[in-house]
Amino acid sequence: MARGRGRGTGGLRRPQDRMQRAFARRQRARRWLTWRYVLAVVLLVAAVGFGVYAIYFSAWLRADGVQVVGNAQLSERQVLATAEVPLGGPLATVDLHRIEVRLKSLATVKSVDVSRTWPHDIRIEIVERTPVAVLDRGDRLTNLDASGVAFGRLAKAPAGLPRVKVGPGADEDALAEGAAVVVALDAAVAELVDFVEVRTVDEIDLHLRDGRLVRWGSAEQADDKAAVLLELLNVKAEVYDVSVPGAPTTR
């Protein structure tokens, strides 16, 4: 009878032992999971700290050079002098916007993009204005682009570009109108033009090299006026009026 009771007690203990061992395993698993989270957080903080140090404080990612691309009329020296890129400090802290603002102060610059080229350079990509005419103010010559912006002082007028002369009443809008007229001219007509006279936004004339005069008017319907003028010049006359392209006149 005693032996039977002993076996019964042992039989009861074995399930309890298994439950205790399973509970202990679960506890160890929970502790390991907790430590895994702690370890992951520690590693993440360390990685972030290392990244901050590398980017902002170490010499590994400092601004050491400047790349200038897209400049043809401006020299690299002019670009760098205007950009004033701070070198020697962290590349990440260089104020790209301020560099762009300084470069846009150059009239020759139509647009500019400043970016970081890791690990050590600042890249300046410039789009320069393209001259379509020469602005002749009497005492000085400058380039004139298609939007009417004057830039780049010239010693003499380059061949192949028409001159634009402005009257005392010509403002920036009138200058933009004059540039639009130049752009609209057919190449064959442009070769005949000595200069474009801009008095106001509505009073623009073309003075041809042979002394003939074209009354153009404003820059409105410029393409239509250019097409009409190309045909009208076949008529022998001294003055051609295309200010109303649907009803041109000559005299």
Rank of each mutant, 00 (worst) to 15 (best):
M1A: 03
R3N: 14
R7I: 05
G8P: 01
P15M: 03
P15D: 00
Q20A: 15
Q20M: 13
F23Q: 10
R25F: 03
R28A: 15
T34Y: 06
V38Q: 04
V45A: 14
V48R: 04
V48M: 07
V52R: 02
V52H: 08
Y53H: 09
I55Q: 14
S58N: 09
A59G: 09
D64A: 10
Q67D: 09
L80A: 03
A81P: 05
L91H: 01
L96E: 04
R98T: 09
I99A: 04
R102T: 07
K104D: 02
A107M: 00
V109N: 00
V112T: 02
V114A: 07
S115F: 02
R116T: 11
H120A: 10
D121W: 15
I122Q: 03
I126E: 02
E128S: 03
V132N: 07
A133K: 06
L135V: 02
L141G: 11
L141N: 13
L141R: 05
T142L: 11
A157L: 06
P158K: 08
G160I: 01
P162C: 13
G167S: 04
A176V: 14
E177W: 09
A179R: 03
A184D: 08
L185K: 08
E191T: 13
L192R: 14
L192M: 08
D194I: 11
V198S: 08
V198F: 07
V201D: 02
L206F: 09
R209I: 14
G211V: 04
R212D: 06
A222I: 11
L232G: 11
K236T: 13
V242F: 01
A247Y: 10
